Amino acid sequence: MVRPYAVTKGRTRPSGQEFDLIALVVSNLPAGADPPVGPEQAVILDRCRGNALSVAEVAAEVDLPLGVVRVLLGDLLDAEYIRVSRPVPPALLPDEHILQEIIHGLRAL
């Protein structure tokens, strides 16, 4: 068992911007490619290969604290081994009233 601070080399924040819990992570690496990363990052890349996982799901899958996963994801993003799609800001989402009207219209059909 390696202590979390050893995995992140003592860092507590990612080098870039913070990751939202619902941001989706996808591996950019083709199948069979082995990047020069540590074992924890290799597990993250393996889990995110072929399907998008949220940052929270990645933390649960690799059984590491969220802060550690964010630092590791920051390193992978800097090395361009992963793609991260940010969630849509609430201001750009449709109004709840409009969605309710759509549901009522569909039910009326």
Rank of each mutant, 00 (worst) to 15 (best):
E40T: 07
A23G: 07
D34Y: 09
A52S: 15
L99G: 03
G16R: 13
A79W: 08
L66E: 01
V7Q: 03
R47F: 04
G105W: 07
L109E: 07
A33I: 04
V7P: 00
V7L: 12
A60D: 09
V26E: 07
R70V: 02
V37P: 05
G38C: 08
G38L: 05
P30D: 05
I82N: 09
A52D: 05
V84H: 07
Y5C: 09
I102N: 08
P35H: 13
A59E: 04
R13K: 15
I102V: 15
P39I: 04
G38P: 04
P94F: 01
P90D: 09
D46L: 10
L92V: 02
P35R: 11
G32P: 12
L29R: 02
G38Q: 03
G16I: 11
G74E: 04
V37L: 10
N28S: 15
L109Q: 13
M1V: 05
I22Q: 08
R83Q: 12
S85P: 01
L64N: 00
E80A: 12
Q17E: 14
S85I: 11
L77P: 03
P35D: 14
A79E: 10
D20W: 13
P87C: 10
S27Y: 01
L53I: 11
D75P: 02
L72W: 08
L109V: 12
G32M: 13
L64F: 08
T8N: 08
E40M: 05
P94K: 06
I44C: 00
L45F: 09
N28H: 11
N28K: 14
R107Q: 13
P65K: 01
G10C: 04
L24M: 11
A31F: 09
D75A: 08
R11C: 06
H97P: 01
V2D: 05
R47M: 02
V69Q: 00
L106C: 12
Q41D: 02
P89F: 06
A42Q: 05
P36N: 14
L109M: 14
I98G: 06
V43S: 06
G16F: 13
M1S: 12
G16A: 14
L24F: 09
Q17N: 13
I98L: 15
E61S: 02
P65F: 01
L72C: 06
V37K: 03
V26K: 13
R47P: 01
Y81N: 04
R11S: 12
D63M: 07
R83P: 03
P4A: 08
L92S: 08
A108V: 08
F19C: 09
N51A: 13
H104K: 14
L53W: 10
G16V: 11
A42I: 02
V43R: 14
V62D: 04
C48N: 02
A23C: 11
S54N: 06
R86C: 01
L66G: 00
R83T: 11
A42V: 00
Q17R: 15
Y81F: 13
L106K: 09
L106N: 09
A56E: 13
R3M: 10
